[in-house]
């Protein structure tokens, strides 16, 4: 029973991984790509690790998979945030269809 649930969770995770990578190809500029891929790939990999935990139960590998999930959930948004900031600071212009750009206006005033 656990293995069937684990299989479903792994397939969901694989699908979200794929959507994130398609977003990486399709979206028009760095910031949108970052949005799509950071969200989808993080949740997808967490899904795969949760599936591993459901397969193995509370053995060594299962506990380590849970720890790995916590690490990824803590570190992936931080690196996405750092990359978005670095892209703005290194002078990448937002896409032409951008509606408002308050951060670009305020960029001189912040440090």
């Amino acid at each position: 029973m656990n293995e069937k649930i684990g299989m479903v969770v792994i397939v969901l995770g694989l699908a979200f991984d794929f959507f994130g990578c398609v977003g990486l190809i399709r979206f028009p500029d760095v910031y949108n790509r970052l949005q799509a891929s950071a969200k989808c790939v993080t949740l997808g990999t967490c899904g795969i690790l949760l599936g591993l935990f459901l397969f193995k139960g509370f053995s060594g590998a299962g506990i380590k998979a849970l720890l790995c999930m916590v690490f990824i959930l803590l570190t992936a948004p931080v690196s996405a945030h750092a990359l978005a900031r670095a892209a703005y600071r290194s002078g990448v212009k937002p896409w032409g269809g951008t509606v408002v750009d308050h951060y670009g206006e305020d960029l001189e005033n912040i440090k």
């Binding site: 979200f16 959507f19 994130g20 398609v22 977003g23 399709r26 979206f27 028009p28 500029d29 910031y31 949108n32 949005q35 799509a36 969200k39 989808c40 949740l43 937002p94 896409w95 269809g97 951008t98 509606v99 408002v100 750009d101 308050h102 951060y103 670009g104 305020d106």
Partner: peptide, 26 residues
């Protein structure tokens, strides 16, 4: 919220017209 976010992004990625209007706000 995380699950909802992924459904939302998946919809926008797979839609042929790319329904996005990006921007940064304070």
């Amino acid at each position: 919220e995380c699950f909802k976010a992924n459904i939302d992004v998946a919809y926008r990625v797979l839609h042929p017209d790319l329904p996005i209007k990006p921007g940064t706000i304070r």
